[in-house]
Design a binder for these strands. Structure first.
Lengths: 265, 265
DNA sequence: GTACAGGGCG
DNA sequence: CGCCCTGTAC
């Protein structure tokens, strides 16, 4: 037989502002794991009690200047750690890792990069290279592993509403896409795309500044759930919950969800 | 015989932040007139629709740098005007006047004065002198008239929690009290005090910066409803609604309410 | 467009 | 303490 394992990722763009929406979504969807990015709170202000009252464990790492990541889970998480551990800047508010029901989950908020000529863009490319190394040092593509989060990269032309005009945007820049491709080659499957091959217009982010971006579907697919092959093969479905982007005070991103059929026990 | 006319005043300290609280209070209390101060919005951002949906007319004058006044009324207002009209700075965001059901209402947000040695304190004293002249030019103490608002003056020792220590505060300064007394002498009755003579500890403002000011009742009575004698004689009750200061996101002030029995018609 | 930080203010 | 503002980031 086997049990369903439901995973979701959401760039909440302030956990303070989005807490009611997240609690409602958790109650309605009850995922085994929810990965959050851009929580934008220092740890002492993270609303951990609200998650516990909703029946979730939660681990998190934030700071004052933005960023911030968290993993909420129905089962208690094991082997929790934060940041890249290669001797470079650990950037702990951008990476949290936890093992839930035996499955290692890495949740990242990849640096956005500001503009192609800004030092932050070099840092983004370097960060993705360091992340590939991180997977290589800690995991094997032959074993189950989940990588979730806001990757700040749209992998393919199909993943942006205007691939020509956006060619030099930091989230669709050839160098950013190549850096992401290096990680995919290490051994990941794009779980959403596995269930929706060649489907255009499937986005997880719509820029607040673009008028009526959601209605006109002028979006980007920059949030992802990727899995190593032994886990990806067990995926049964994946979807984007656009309704959450139509809520009262929505984030500019929305929820991405994937389901896996796990062996019993 | 006769109908009740209920008037309220509230320094909301940002109409944007306080709108939910105000709408709830209006629904529960249904005053004929609500005078608001420190709306802190330019006119194009005043939430007039929300008042209309609550069944209220509303007139208002605001600006970018703070201040801002409004009069909401169940009946349509007549003779609406803004500011002092004596050739000096009109300061329109500090005075709104409207006639409701035949009763002229002047709603003011008197300048606070910053400190006794600051030019703004001289401006405050001058403003109160100009206001006395304004009443003299437009009205007669022999006719009904209401003056409501944040006067930024506690008239008597009984109206502050520590009259000795606060002697030189701009809101209890002898010169400010004298300037207010000049207006009272023109022909006003302090309606709240008429119904609560010699009652200490009756305040409408508690400084945010004083820890647990409300619980310790370290307040000030600086918000007022004053009436000319023919109207004051018809007042039947007046009270301070401290509950609104215990709400979710309260202002540092609270609502002051007065009721009048008007002749039929 | 939305939310942060930091500074001014009462 | 909790508004305003300005500037910055995405």
């Amino acid at each position: 037989m086997g049990e369903v394992f439901r995973v979701a990722t959401y760039n909440c763009n302030s956990i303070r502002t989005r807490l009611p929406l997240i609690l409602k979504w958790l109650a309605a969807n009850r995922p085994d794991v929810l990965c959050l990015q851009e929580t934008k709170v220092p740890d002492e202000e993270f609303p951990a009690d609200a998650f516990r009252e909703a029946g979730y464990h939660v681990v998190f790492r934030g700071q004052k200047g933005g960023a911030g990541v968290a993993i909420a889970s129905l089962a208690a998480p094991d082997d929790v750690s934060f940041g890249l551990d290669d001797g470079g800047p650990p950037d702990e508010a951008r990476l949290v890792r936890a093992t839930v029901r035996g499955i290692p989950v890495v949740n990242t908020y990849v640096p956005q990069g500001r503009s192609p000529d800004h030092p932050m863009f070099r840092y983004k490319l370097e960060w993705l290279a360091r992340l590939r190394d991180y997977f290589d040092r800690h995991f094997s593509p032959a074993e189950p592993l989940l990588w979730c989060g806001d990757f700040n990269v749209a992998p393919e032309e199909i993943d942006v509403h205007n691939p020509v005009r956006l060619k030099h945007h930091v989230d669709f820049h050839p160098e950013a896409r190549a850096a992401l491709e290096r990680i995919r080659e290490w051994g990941f499957v794009d779980v959403f795309r596995r269930h929706h091959p060649n489907e255009p217009g499937q986005y997880t982010f719509w820029d607040y500044r673009v008028p009526r971006a959601l209605e006109r579907n002028l979006g980007w697919r920059v949030d992802h759930i990727w899995a190593t092959p032994p886990l990806a093969e067990r995926s049964v479905d994946a979807w984007i919950d656009r309704e959450a982007r139509r809520a009262e005070k929505p984030s500019d991103h929305t929820f991405l969800v994937a389901e896996f059929k796990l062996p019993p026990g």
